[in-house]
Design a protein around this nucleic acid. Structure first.
Lengths: 342, 342
DNA sequence: TTGAAAGCGCTAACAA
DNA sequence: TTGTTAGCGCTTTCAA
């Protein structure tokens, strides 16, 4: 037992090499399980390194080897309920690989995203997983010339820089519109986020309205909100909407959380669901499983998207490959709040 | 406009310096806004760098300057509903500073935490924010000798390595126990996570039972679950609990999500809340705002904890300071599911 | 199986 | 205001 004084300066390979009486190179080999090192020296080095509390400097390592085992994940928000699931998928796919995910947040702001992308790229990660297809010109350019695999996720409605894994939010909403009309609902309202910052929510709204149009219907009323989604928002806005347009027979929500709030309100007020009033959300989140009724929804395949995206990064780590587009097609779940087709 | 071929090899400072006809050092200065550079050269360099799509290599920069503007945040899970809020607090405090948070996930596993801490430390971050006070011996040792500010968050019941910001989960649960007994409830049940992996949930349970003991009561029944929290879990377990022990007059849940599920079940079954049956959770999450009743709870001060922790990192960036312990004291909110004290 | 030398791309410190 | 020099702590490459 040597007396160890907590070092002001972090320990270097050299410190360990001196303590163990071998070259820095040998220590480096032992610590990375590379090349042939005799069992004896190996033991001795490991022992010393542990005893001294040596933590290698990955910055120096990365500079020397130009290898960085980080995957940058750039998402708008962590409290959105959809992104934790995506992260879960990414983490699980990266488990048991040398890669580690590192998250950057953009708050749905394109300029913020540009900054975060720049920052992330400047660390030369092994891959970039970025939510969405909408970026500033500068962001697209950076990604395009970065030389690392770029996977845009969640959405497939647009032009990816490189690879893309997601669902079409436009067709998800179209499917929902069709199912609503097919079930005989005719006076349809909408509750959702104020359009703009969330492109996927916007595409769902647009796809929904467009498909209603094709079926000869117009949205009868709508109510938008700003800021985060919560059940309270769904409750309030549903009340506003139904007071103003009491003849609605369906409400489509931009996500399950506000939808659940609206659903609770409607149940409480004694609406006859799904006969006189149908309800649907989007995402397929299961934290809400305990509700009195199951809200109709379309799964956004979050975990699977994360998993596939991470898989793409792994598969293109050292080889450059052609771009890939993976489009998932979730099916609609009517739950208890929507009639079957007539 | 020069014709730019997307480079296979990432651009270096040297490439920009040659293109702009100045030294690497001058380019470096311009890009970091350091030292005096004439407006003319400054413009020229910026122009060239942008045109070429140069992204600086922070790995080299960090190695040369031994400065890394990253704050490592190590948390168990991103889907837990409490950690997104903590992250929000951290991000907001780090906005407009050079520091950037970087998240690592441990899945509540001590060995995984050890790996993640090692990985993070090996990037020599400007600070470490770590959830909880329970770590492996090796983890504690690493943190202790790391030489960077270490802030343990969420919990204050234990021995921090360095700084600590949080609440006492033990006393939060004691406060709740007192409030329950003071309100005249006597036959008390518990629904929560199977003890073990989540230390804070465990401490709440223990504190709760201990305080009931002091007030001369015992927990009358309890129901534990494994895996993630969801409203469905709350509903199921509440049903089980109340069928087995129909005489309960209070149920304490280990968090608001399961609590909300239980509450919905009880409302649906027509229990007289809060008179014949009281309910309480923990956390003060507001995504649940839309419920028919407001569940009694104690706020876990998540955003504030994040903010304060990031502040501590900032304040100790270059100066070494003494450890600080910040203990917040949230007050109990009775909501609509708990009687006032007799 | 081990070691020595060179250099990754940048910045600190100093010089001009 | 600008440039030069010498590393940062590792890994690559080549030699012993």
């Amino acid at each position: 037992m040597t007396d160890t004084i907590p070092p002001r300066r972090p320990l270097t390979l050299r410190d360990v090499s001196e303590a163990a009486g071998v070259s820095e190179m040998t220590v480096s080999r032992v610590l990375r399980n590379r090349g042939d090192v005799s069992a004896a020296t190996r033991e001795r080095v490991l022992e010393k390194a542990r005893e001294m509390g040596y933590v290698p400097n990955k910055i120096a390592g990365a500079l020397a080897s130009s290898r960085v085992n980080l995957v940058a994940v750039v998402i708008p928000s962590i409290s959105n309920m959809v992104f934790p699931d995506v992260m879960g998928g990414i983490s699980s796919a990266l488990e048991d690989t040398p890669l580690q995910p590192v998250v950057g947040l953009t708050s749905y702001k394109p300029e913020k995203e540009e900054q975060v992308l720049y920052e992330m790229l400047s660390w030369r990660p092994s891959g970039m997983i970025v939510a969405g297809l909408e970026h500033t010109e500068a962001s697209r350019a950076m990604l395009a010339v970065s030389g690392v695999p770029v996977i845009e996720i969640m959405d497939t409605d647009g032009e990816p820089v490189d690879c893309c894994v997601g669902i079409s939010h436009r067709s998800a909403a179209q499917d929902m519109a069709d199912a609503i009309v097919d079930a005989g609902y005719r006076r349809i309202g909408f509750v959702g986020t104020a359009l703009g910052m969330d492109h996927r929510a916007r595409k769902r709204f647009e796809g929904f309205v467009a498909q209603l149009g094709k079926r000869g219907l117009e949205l009868e009323d709508r109510e938008f909100y700003e800021g985060g989604s919560g059940m309270a928002k769904g409750r309030e806005l549903t009340e506003v909407l139904l007071k103003r347009s009491p003849d609605l027979d369906f409400i489509y929500y931009s996500n399950d959380i506000v939808g659940a709030g609206g659903m609770l309100y409607c149940i409480e007020k004694g609406y006859d669901i799904p006969n006189k009033l149908g309800l649907a959300g989007f995402n397929g989140v299961d934290i809400l499983g305990g509700q009195p009724m199951r809200l109709a929804t379309i799964d956004s395949c979050r975990a699977e998207i994360g998993k596939l995206a991470a898989g793409l990064v792994l598969s293109r780590m050292d080889t450059s490959k052609a771009s890939e587009l993976v489009k998932l097609s979730p099916k609609l779940d009517r739950g208890d709040t929507m009639r079957e087709p007539l």
